[in-house]
């Protein structure tokens, strides 16, 4: 006897779509290559720490695993966000979404299914990272603390926000290529603003304090944009969460976690709403 409750049926559709997308991605070489590259980059970061310590005898750091964890989770989440975007775009491009919606699948079930699939895959990647971290702690005598596990936790929420962002760009962009371009451009912008801000803030201002030096104007403008970006960018929130953990500021940590959760919900809600308006056919 089939449960006639709409929420139950929606949840069934979410589970089935999630299962399908998890399987497809996990049977594909791409995710494993991405995880391997991410772990190699993380190893580079740790190797750098080792070299520095060897040369200078002393190396002072927060948690030495914070940077490798950040690198790995950012790279994997970028990949997952991109392929989530491509997954949705392709479904619309080749009209298989329409075929899905002949059956008991609506826009929210479809997007939530893909969303959960990619978050699930992120957890698989996190498992690799977890193993790598513990081996690093053991082999290199790094030492680990509970704060590292809290960073693992918040990275899952960060990745969720990136995946949700990928879904939104897919629905917004209609075609696969357009969606991917939007996804990359916006992330590049968010990252670029922060990098530019770092560079300009360290530039020497050569004129006298009262004149409107162009660098000062650019710096002030970038400072304002950067503050906005720090609220909008999931990566910036992850960095702030790591700072909060290092500072033992649990209120700050929960705030960053809350912002990431809100970002995820807003992006998911936005993508469902937009897909409902645009329709399966576009």
């Amino acid at each position: 006897m089939i449960n006639q409750n709409a929420w139950y049926q929606r949840w069934n559709a979410i589970k089935v779509i999630r299962g399908r997308y998890s399987q497809v991605t996990l049977e594909h070489l791409g995710i494993y290559v991405t995880i391997a590259i991410a772990l190699v980059m993380s190893t580079l970061a740790i190797h750098n720490t080792l070299r520095f310590t060897e040369r200078n005898v002393v190396f002072v750091a927060r948690q030495p695993l914070f940077l490798p964890i950040f690198i790995c989770t950012v790279l994997v989440s970028l990949y997952l966000g991109a392929i989530a975007s491509v997954s949705v775009s392709r479904e619309r491009d080749r009209k298989t979404l329409e075929a899905l919606m002949y059956g008991p699948v609506d826009e929210s079930a479809f997007l939530l299914g893909i969303f959960l699939a990619h978050v699930q895959i992120f957890l698989v990647a996190l498992a690799f990272l977890f193993i790598w971290s513990n081996l690093a702690v053991w082999l290199l005598n790094l030492g680990i603390s509970l704060e590292v596990y809290s960073v693992f936790f918040v990275s899952v929420v960060m990745a969720s926000a990136i995946v949700a962002f990928g879904l939104l760009t897919a629905v917004w962009g209609d075609k696969t290529r357009t969606a991917l371009v939007i996804f990359i451009l916006i992330l590049l912008f968010l990252t670029g603003v922060q990098i530019a801000d770092q560079i300009v803030s360290n530039m020497v201002v050569s004129s006298n304090p009262t004149s409107n030096d162009p660098i000062l104007i650019i710096r002030n403008a970038l400072a304002i944009v950067t503050r906005l970006v720090q609220w909008l960018s999931p990566y910036a929130q992850l960095i702030q969460a790591m700072d909060a953990v290092a500072n033992q500021s649990w209120i700050g940590f929960i705030t960053n976690l809350g912002v990431l959760v809100i970002q995820t919900f807003v992006l998911l809600f936005g993508s469902v709403k937009l897909l409902t308006i645009k329709g399966a056919r576009g």
């Binding site: 709409a6 049926q9 008991p104």
Partner: peptide
């Protein structure tokens, strides 16, 4: 109104 039940 009842898309899931109808579509199945």
């Amino acid at each position: 109104k009842k898309p899931f039940m109808i579509k199945r």
